[in-house]
Nucleic acid binder design. Sequence first.
DNA 1: CCAAAAGTGTTAAGCATACACCCATGC
DNA 2: GCATGGGTGTATGCTTAACACTTTTGG
Lengths: 235, 235
Amino acid sequence: MILKKYNKNQEISVAIDCVIIGYDQKKLSVLLFQRQVEPFKGSWSLLGEVPDAKTSMDKSAQDIIYKLTGAKDIYLSQLKTYGDLDRDPLERVISIVYYSLIRVDVFKKIDLKKYNAKWFDLNEVPEIILDHNQMINDAVSKLREIAKTKPIGFRLLPKLFTLPQLQNLYECLYSNGFDSRNFRKKILSSGFLKKTNIKDKSSSRKGAFLYSFIDSNQFVEEKTKDTNIKDVFEF
Amino acid sequence: MILKKYNKNQEISVAIDCVIIGYDQKKLSVLLFQRQVEPFKGSWSLLGEVPDAKTSMDKSAQDIIYKLTGAKDIYLSQLKTYGDLDRDPLERVISIVYYSLIRVDVFKKIDLKKYNAKWFDLNEVPEIILDHNQMINDAVSKLREIAKTKPIGFRLLPKLFTLPQLQNLYECLYSNGFDSRNFRKKILSSGFLKKTNIKDKSSSRKGAFLYSFIDSNQFVEEKTKDTNIKDVFEF
DNA sequence: CCAAAAGTGTTAAGCATACACCCATGC
DNA sequence: GCATGGGTGTATGCTTAACACTTTTGG
């Protein structure tokens, strides 16, 4: 039986855009790209692509990040789909947006020149094309929401990190200072952290103990489904 | 200046599907439609459509619901986009899914026969086409998440409702019984409810006072952005 | 010895939880 | 007068929030 397709001449194009968020031990940044072609040549934008019809959307987003970083275990999640009528003046395109968290030690390897890319402090994002500013804002909101209940913040840190580093990351994300005693109590009681005996002395004379996240992706996926862990990361 | 389009021959089609959730004072249901055409003729599915290239996605979803119910103030929100490669065996289609909460007093007006539609208890959803079961599950999960912090549950009730009704709704959503004293304390302290002096005697001899939700959409949008109201609706 | 960052405990308040009886009414 | 569902208060434990000083070490 041969069936006719749903709509042969649909005139809606599909794009994928990625909000790539990174952390450099001091501040949160977003990776922007300077367009080399018209339209909007010379303007900054998110990393976007027209997906291949033979690849799933999730996989397409992964491929985009992989091409950029060479890394495969990057955190990547669908944000939402932007479908306003006039969001792109050139033609009707809807954009399926993903957001990604990239660890310092991974993104250092990105050849920024090759991609005409630059990290921008999240608090100093310039005007960028189309509705891409909105996408960044939405991604940050979602990240704040999710970081309260899931330990995704660890995705932004190197494998070993100190508690002051972790606290700084949360403080950047929420633009807010936290009491270090309360922060430590809460974060340690969550059971996500494993202390090492190694001290990192790069930022103080006394040195701070390094911790690792009790890794294993299944921990993130499985354990945090349990509603008991709710708000573990809210300070 | 004439620019060439991004990709003239993209072979990805776009669909919109709607998870329509209703409440009939006893249980939560989802509205399914029996397909009248191939492919999958005779099978149950969500309400779906191929969007018009001249309408925004949000508006398209609203239009779909409006055509069905005639109502314009329906709660409607984007769930996520389903983009797996083989989700539709016929061709490459991605589906942008919205979910909608429909009040009893609105959905009674739907001509179910005309649309070959039927309400199914959320606990007894049959096998439906493609990945539509997954869409329903995701919508319920999201609804549970959101109902903890935002008063969207009220969208499923008539303008005036009793506290036992509201409690039943939450109990259905979470498949879980709540202590009525604690429930009332929490829900009343949220400030979302306004008591009337009218008693509803349809379900008991004593009668239960009717309440209304302090309506105004801006309340839902604005006030709940404040993180203080977090978890008001978690029991 | 001192500057700079890391690390540590206690108290008070608010919130969530558990729990059982009286009330109003129609029949 | 009794059956049915509606309505109410308190005591306990837990979680959060506020708060300041000591430790370590390199220079």
